[in-house]
Amino acid sequence: MDLKLSQCFIAVDDHDKALAFYRDVLGLEVRGDVAFEGMRWVTVGSPLQPDVQIVLEPPAASPDISPADKQAMAELLAKGVLRGVIFSTADCDALYERVRASGADVLQEPMDQPYGVRDCAFRDPAGNLLRFTERPDA
């Protein structure tokens, strides 16, 4: 079976803040910026993975979702309980210093994990959990 990841979605409540983080701090390239029916989707990705896109979308962007569910999603995002993305990097410590210096919310300083990676964790401006892992052979 020929199966590869193409896109993943991260809910954001402010696209301009998200762009400042994902583009300016993490160095991802902007691949699209689309407005539709009062909403906005921004697509970013790593230059090292041209076929994988991360879509920064409004919380509960589905047109079929109820107002109560939209409110619940916005509250969960604000609490920081929605899942995010795990990135890999060749230098966890350097990446940590760069992201920390940007003022991002630090959840975990770089540390060696018992399952074989060195990693650190932050929250993006919307509160999503982002982990950055370095494999020992990197």
Rank of each mutant, 00 (worst) to 15 (best):
E75R: 14
R31A: 07
D64G: 04
E75V: 01
F36Y: 14
S62L: 01
R40L: 03
R31C: 09
A94S: 09
S6F: 07
F36W: 11
R40I: 05
L82G: 02
L95S: 00
V42R: 13
L19I: 15
V106Q: 02
S6P: 00
R100C: 13
A101Q: 08
M39P: 01
Q49R: 13
R83W: 01
C92K: 03
A68I: 00
Y96T: 07
L5Y: 11
V106L: 03
E29W: 03
L48K: 10
V55Y: 07
D14K: 07
D16T: 08
K70W: 04
E37L: 07
K17W: 00
M39V: 07
L28S: 02
Q53F: 11
A78K: 15
R40C: 01
G84Q: 04
S6N: 09
R98N: 11
L76N: 12
P59C: 07
V81S: 15
R100Q: 14
L56K: 04
W41E: 06
A90D: 11
S62K: 02
L48N: 03
Y96H: 13
P47E: 15
D105E: 13
G38P: 03
L56N: 02
Q53L: 12
F87G: 07
V42L: 14
L26A: 03
L48E: 10
S46R: 07
D33W: 04
A72I: 05
A18I: 13
A68Y: 06
S66V: 08
V81P: 09
A35H: 10
V52I: 15
A11P: 11
M39D: 08
A104S: 15
Q49H: 13
V30E: 15
S88N: 14
E37I: 01
D13H: 15
F36D: 13
R40K: 03
C8N: 12
D13F: 12
D33L: 08
R98M: 00
R40E: 02
R31I: 03
D16W: 10
E97P: 02
L95T: 06
G80H: 05
Q71A: 14
R98V: 00
D24Q: 10
F9V: 05
V44K: 00
V85P: 01
D93M: 06
D14V: 03
G84V: 14
E29Q: 08
G27A: 09
L56W: 03
S66G: 13
D91T: 04
L28D: 06
L56S: 05
T89V: 12
L19V: 15
D13E: 15
V44R: 00
K79R: 15
C8L: 13
E97Q: 15
V25D: 11
A94E: 14
S88M: 04
G45A: 11
A11S: 13
S46Y: 08
H15Q: 08
A18L: 03
L26P: 13
Y22F: 14
A60N: 06
A90P: 10
